[in-house]
Simulated scan of single mutants.
Amino acid sequence: MELTVFGATGGIGREIVRQALDAGHGVTAVVRDPARLDAGGPRLKVFPADLSDPDALRPAVAGRDAVLSGLGARRKADAGVAARLTRVVLAAMEAEEVRRLLVVSAAPLGAPAGRDPLPDRAMTALVGAVLKDVYTDLRAMEEALARSAADWTAVRPPRLVDRPLTGRYRTAVGANPRSARVIGRADVAHAMLAMTADPATVGRGVGVAY
C-alpha cells in the first residue's frame, strides 16, 4: 500500500512509519522538521509542511491508499490541536478524493466493553478530570470525522508507554477492552496498520489495550 503518515516524528507516528516500511509499504511522512525523522530508505518520502493549508497538503495525500495520523496534544497546553489539524487533513483528503483515515484518539471517549472494576472506573474519572481539555479536543476531532465523507477509524488507547512491539493486545470495536489500562506506542501503531484494510472498523471507534 501507499500510505501517508501525519505526526510522523511523534511516538506513535514514528512507529507507524517504521513498521509500515518494514512491511514493504510506501510511506509519505508529513513533518514540520525533516531533520527529526530518521532515514528510511527509498520507500520513504518526506513531505515538509506546517499543516495550516489544506491545498498545500494535497500532494501528500493524492493517490494514497490510506492516511494515518498520530496528531494530537503532547501536553495539556496543546489541547485544541487534534481537532484543528485533523480538519485540515480531512479537507486535503476530500479535495483529492482519498477516503481511508485512521487517527489516534483516547480510551475515555469509548464505552467499556463490560463493567470495569471500581478502581479502574475511579482512575478513568480522575484522568478525565485532569485532562478534560485534551479529551474535549479529541471529542471535537471525532465529531469532525463523523461529519466528514472519510472512511475513518478512531483508535482509542488508554495510557501510552514506550515498550517494544509485542503484537499482543486486545481490541474492541465500538468499546474499550475490559480494564483497559495501558498499551505501548509501538503496539498502537501495529493496531492502526492492521486496521487499515479492515472494513469492520470503518466509521467506528476502536479500543486497544494490553
Rank of each mutant, 00 (worst) to 15 (best):
D198Q: 11
A8W: 05
T153C: 12
P42F: 01
P108W: 08
A60P: 10
I16T: 00
V155P: 00
V161P: 11
R181N: 09
D120T: 14
R147K: 13
V61I: 09
V98R: 06
A29G: 13
R64P: 09
D78F: 02
L51G: 06
E15C: 12
V182K: 11
R204L: 04
Y169W: 03
R100V: 09
D151I: 02
G13N: 01
P54I: 12
G184F: 02
P117W: 00
R74Y: 06
L3A: 14
P157E: 00
R64D: 08
K45Q: 12
R178N: 12
V61F: 11
A95S: 07
G10E: 10
V127I: 13
A180M: 01
D65Y: 00
I183H: 05
D198G: 04
V206I: 13
L126W: 06
A35Q: 12
A197C: 07
V103Y: 03
E97S: 14
A82P: 12
G26L: 08
V161W: 01
V130D: 03
V127M: 13
R75Q: 15
G80W: 09
A77K: 07
R139P: 05
V46C: 09
R43P: 07
L126R: 12
R32K: 04
M1V: 14
A154E: 02
E97A: 15
V173P: 09
A191M: 04
G207E: 09
A191N: 07
R156P: 03
F47Q: 09
V17S: 04
P34N: 06
G11I: 03
L85F: 05
D78G: 03
D187L: 07
A73W: 02
G114D: 15
D198C: 10
L57N: 06
R84C: 01
G40L: 11
M141H: 05
P112C: 08
R139L: 11
R32D: 15
D33E: 12
G63L: 04
A189P: 01
G13Q: 04
V67H: 03
A154D: 01
T28H: 03
V81K: 00
I12N: 03
A200S: 14
L3V: 13
V104A: 08
L51W: 03
A49L: 08
A29K: 06
D137M: 00
A140L: 14
L165G: 12
L145R: 04
H190T: 08
L138V: 07
I16E: 03
H190R: 09
M1G: 14
R36D: 04
A66M: 01
P177D: 12
P54W: 11
A175T: 14
L102Y: 08
P34T: 00
A56K: 05
D162L: 14
A20R: 01
V17C: 10
E143D: 15
A146T: 05
A129H: 12
R163A: 15
M141N: 04
F6G: 04
R75P: 02
G7K: 03
S179N: 13
V81H: 03
L160T: 03
L44C: 09
V27H: 08
A209D: 04
A113R: 08
G63M: 06
A92W: 11
M123R: 05
R87Q: 14
R204Q: 15
R178Y: 06
T196P: 04
V98T: 13
D33N: 14
R115M: 13
G205N: 01
A95H: 01
R58V: 15
A122I: 11
R163G: 14
